[in-house]
Amino acid sequence: MLHRIYTCLVATAFVIGLGTSAQAEDTLLTVTFDGKTQTFDRAALEAFDLEVIETTTIWTDGAQTFEGVSLAAITDAIGAEEGKLLATAINDYTVEIPISDAVENGPIIAMKLNGEEMSVRDKGPLWIVYPYDAKADYRTEVIYSRSIWQLDRIEVVQ
């Protein structure tokens, strides 16, 4: 009898562990600000008003269509008004983006490229994309350096 109870407890712990692991894998973006951490899975990101940017990039051929959440919507949602964003990729590469870049009709956190979800192999699942063709200010080395792909976390620092 004790063996059976022990076996059930071990099995339950294993299943709970799998559930936790699966939930962690579902998180696409983790945002930390003011001592609080917020996670976003695909559904949470898609709950925002999604924006579409059609633009050329220095990394792709021809015009591309990107769809995602505006950086402004994310900073508004967490209440960040000043400072900088430390945007970090899956491989721990980090870039600094001033919150002043998070404007209407500005950069988005793209989740789709030409209507398809992006894989890690294709710069996904998240890529910060500016509307490069919208104005010359978006076609500079500084802006290109902020266009981080394989994004998985953002920390807001003052």
Rank of each mutant, 00 (worst) to 15 (best):
G79V: 02
V142S: 15
E82M: 06
L28P: 00
A47P: 00
E82P: 01
N114F: 04
A134H: 05
Y144H: 14
F40L: 06
Q38C: 01
A11E: 12
I74Y: 04
V120D: 13
L18F: 13
G124C: 02
E117D: 15
A102P: 08
R139N: 13
S21R: 13
T65K: 11
Y6L: 13
L50Y: 08
Y6P: 03
N114L: 01
V10R: 14
P107Y: 14
L86V: 06
D92K: 12
D76K: 12
E104P: 08
L71I: 04
S70F: 00
T60D: 14
I128D: 02
C8H: 10
D76I: 03
A11P: 13
L50A: 05
A136G: 03
E46N: 03
G124L: 01
T75F: 07
G115C: 13
Q38D: 04
T88R: 07
Q23C: 11
C8K: 10
T65E: 10
F40Q: 09
A43I: 04
L71K: 08
E25H: 11
G79L: 09
T88N: 05
T20I: 09
T140H: 04
T94C: 04
F48H: 00
L151H: 04
D76A: 10
I97T: 01
N91T: 02
E82S: 13
R42A: 12
A72R: 12
E116M: 09
G17M: 13
V103K: 10
